[in-house]
Design a protein around this nucleic acid. Structure first.
Lengths: 227, 227
DNA sequence: TTACACACTTGATCCAAATCAAGTTTACTT
DNA sequence: AAGTAAACTTGATTTGGATCAAGTGTGTAA
């Protein structure tokens, strides 16, 4: 795959929270955005860092891990183009409790707290876009917190698969975007269990495993019915 | 305990998201706020309802339960004075996936979506207060999602106890604000397990059980170290 | 004060999933 | 194409916590 270079203007247009802005306002945004391209495996930010900027994924993909008190870590988000993180930093100086790593070469736009506050005063409707994104993220997290305590591993894996498959054509083979080890961390289980459950689902005729990390969903409805 | 009646103006001043507003703006808010007092056990809103308002707890306490696909439920929030819910409703019409119930007689301020949008256009700095609250809630949910998958029941219970005890003087007896059954639902476990873990903690000398639902934390540090 | 309904506790059993331990593939390097 | 390290699979065993089943408190209403 060839890496696609994007100009600053294009980069910003991609980001949903800037959708409501006029051309003039977009230019103001361009002026305060810093861009950086991270290589695969590079760290976007670290736990313990003082967070003072909003980090927006312009192109690429990054994993965000949260560190628990006992040292274990939990994969919180898989950031795609247009997603952002660090929003808490925009109002108060806080210390990050998570760290992020680029999964593939990733282009990032970042905005400093002070710049952001100036911008927000000038373009208040920007707040609407952010509120909207926040709302979505809260719903997503509420769902995750609920499913983790009310469903079995099988159910959570099934949900994850159906969700992930949604961005591919129905019934076709696709490659899982994460390794089994990482899916396991994301769902709060182990690679062994993922392996076994996938076999069960295949035996039941709900999916088909292919080479490497490829699978095809055959019966999304049955999968979704799993507890 | 005597129920305290509050006027509309007082009610609104209590709410953190309205803190940044001027007196004039507060009056505009007053004009669009609807107030209602719910009795203990009454339903504030139901899953399946179309959500079209922001619900703010002015005085009292309410539980918010999220319903999982398989019918099980999860206690998501214990709303206190000043907390709000339904924020997703302020931008898009959505169907609620949670329901809320008053724990004690509870005074609620609500704002309709259309009214809110008009207000926001007139007082954009209101968005800042909301963004701030959203940020806090996201952090809280991230923490919960993480602890549920990385800690054992003992660790989660210990965290819950230490957190809850934080609002009482150190080392003294206090009454848990929820029944064991509800603590169990909140932590994703059962009353039996709560009972047993509390005994373990008492045997270890980290806390002391009293009458009814009373406990005293003796060694918060040791509790916090629990996995 | 008695009675009745709940909340809570305690014990016995069971089970889903973690852990431990080899193998086997897959994919990358030279 | 061969060599190696990592990812994955499969099997055996263990275990934390759920579930089931009696009890014992506790608070409330007559």
């Amino acid at each position: 795959m060839r890496e696609q270079k994007l100009g600053t203007h294009d980069c910003i247009q991609l980001v949903p929270i800037f959708k409501q802005l006029t051309t003039v306002e977009l230019q103001q945004v361009s002026a305060i955005v810093h861009e950086h391209v991270y290589e695969k495996g590079e760290t976007l930010f670290n736990a313990g860092d003082e967070a003072n900027q909003l980090t927006i994924i312009a192109a690429g993909q990054a994993k965000v891990y949260q560190l628990a008190a006992n040292g274990r870590e939990q994969l919180l988000y898989l950031l795609q183009s247009g997603d952002f993180d660090g929003e808490a930093a925009l109002f108060n100086p806080v210390t990050r409790t998570s760290y992020a790593e680029a999964l593939v070469p990733t282009q990032v736009c970042s905005i400093q707290r002070s710049d952001f506050q100036t911008l927000l005063a000038r373009a208040p409707q920007l707040a609407l876009g952010i509120l909207n994104e926040f709302g979505k993220r809260i719903s997503q997290l509420e769902g995750k917190a609920t499913s983790v305590t009310t469903s079995s591993i099988g159910g959570r894996l099934a949900d994850y698969l159906v969700e992930t498959a949604a961005s591919f054509p129905a019934q076709t083979m696709f490659t899982l975007p994460l390794q089994k080890k990482e899916i396991a961390v994301y769902l709060g289980t182990t690679p062994e269990t993922i392996s076994r459950k996938l076999n069960e689902f295949q035996t039941a005729g709900w999916l088909k495993k292919g080479h490497g990390n490829q699978i095809a969903i055959l019966d999304a409805d049955q999968l979704a019915l799993q507890d």
